[in-house]
């Protein structure tokens, strides 16, 4: 399986029109994301992920908010871990980096019909609130940071 997706095409186009002030993520490198064998092998940024920053994005309710649905043992200091998805303990033993990256970018490409949001996709949505329109939930670097955090679980 080899496909090329321009997941962030609309943002790039809009960004060109509106200039640098367009969005919080306007400085992300929105290159085409290559999906290979059910994963995205290449880093979205080329910059290594940061575990601490990843942890922040995982916990922050306005960013990853991963605990809404998943339990993470190392975050036991945070109250109320959800039970909608599986525990993230040892998740990097179950999936490769490339698979984790695609699951984060657009989970529905891996798990058809999943409730999980697509954290780095801008197109194909309906009725997005103005405030979030054309934006991704996480930045490209945050996706890499979350992967680094998940690998430490």
């Amino acid at each position: 399986m080899r496909e090329v997706f321009r997941l962030a095409k609309s943002l790039v186009v809009a960004g060109l029109c509106a200039g640098a002030a367009f969005s919080a993520h306007a400085d992300d490198k929105m290159a085409s994301l290559k999906i290979v064998d059910g994963g995205i092998p290449a880093s979205l940024t080329g910059v290594a992920g940061d575990v601490d920053k990843g942890r922040k994005a995982v916990v922050n309710r306005k960013q990853g908010n991963c605990l809404a649905c998943h339990a993470v043992s190392s975050l036991d200091n945070q109250p109320f871990h959800g039970e909608v998805g599986p525990s993230l303990d040892g998740v990097s033993e179950r999936y490769s980096d490339a698979q984790l990256r695609l699951i984060l970018v657009d989970s529905k490409k891996v798990f058809e019909g999943s409730i999980m949001p697509s954290f780095y996709r801008t197109g194909g949505y309906q009725r997005v609130a103005k405030k979030f329109d054309g934006k991704t939930i996480l930045s490209a670097q945050q996706v890499e940071d979350v992967i680094a955090f998940l690998k430490a679980q």
């Binding site: 529905k108 409730i115 949001p117 949505y125 309906q126 009725r127 997005v128 609130a129 979030f132 934006k135």
Partner: peptide, 12 residues
């Protein structure tokens, strides 16, 4: 029908 940036339907 899925809606919003979180892309969820009532059914999810």
């Amino acid at each position: 029908t899925r809606v919003g940036q979180l892309d969820m339907a009532c059914s999810n």
